[in-house]
Amino acid sequence: MPSGHIVSAFEEELQFLSRRLAAMGGQAERLVEQAVAALVNGDPVLAQKVIRDDLLLDEAQREIDDKAISIIARRQPMARDLREIIGSIRITADLERVGDLGKNLAKRVNAVAEGRQPASLFRGLEALAELALAQLKEVLDVFASRSVERIGFVRDRDEEIDAMYTSLFRELLTYMMEDPRNITPCTHLLFCAKNIERIGDHATNIAETIYYMVTGDQMPPERPKEDKSHRVTLNRS
């Protein structure tokens, strides 16, 4: 053996768990990517594929949960190993939610495609999705490298995502006020933006779980949230 150490059956089980989790993460990343592409390009075929692929994530979640529970039952792990397993269960739940949100994006493709919306809206949505996907990717990269000292970026990116979401929210309201016929597609786009923003939040949750898995401590408390959309109002003037 090149690495020169013997991997016990237990360690192998833990490795299986994290590999399965990474594969699930990869599927979730791909799913969101494709959902956004389907939305921006108005591609109903890709949207159907996304909706089907969500089943893979559900299945992965079940498999990881079963495995985790059986490891706990048989091995009674302690300390870091226990955190690793509990962490996996939490992360897999977050990833499954990410998949659901992606699927929801895909389901709205047809509704949004009716009546062409301004290109700038889609660019905004794309930029938002790029931020959320970057968040997810970097968080899962930290899961691979376990370099939790780099996890500070998560908070910064979170703020960016929230600011972008608030800006999109405002723009969508403007379009709706301009012409009531825009209300249907713009409401769908509003939900899409919200879903993407939620994906970013789940990525942040995963980051917190990873921090806990590696260090055994909770991530230092969060700074106040920057999402101001709950206060956005537009007055007809």
Partner: peptide, 9 residues
């Protein structure tokens, strides 16, 4: 771990 870094299916 490569499978953790390259997660694409």
């Amino acid at each position: 771990s490569l499978p953790l870094r390259f997660r694409a299916p």
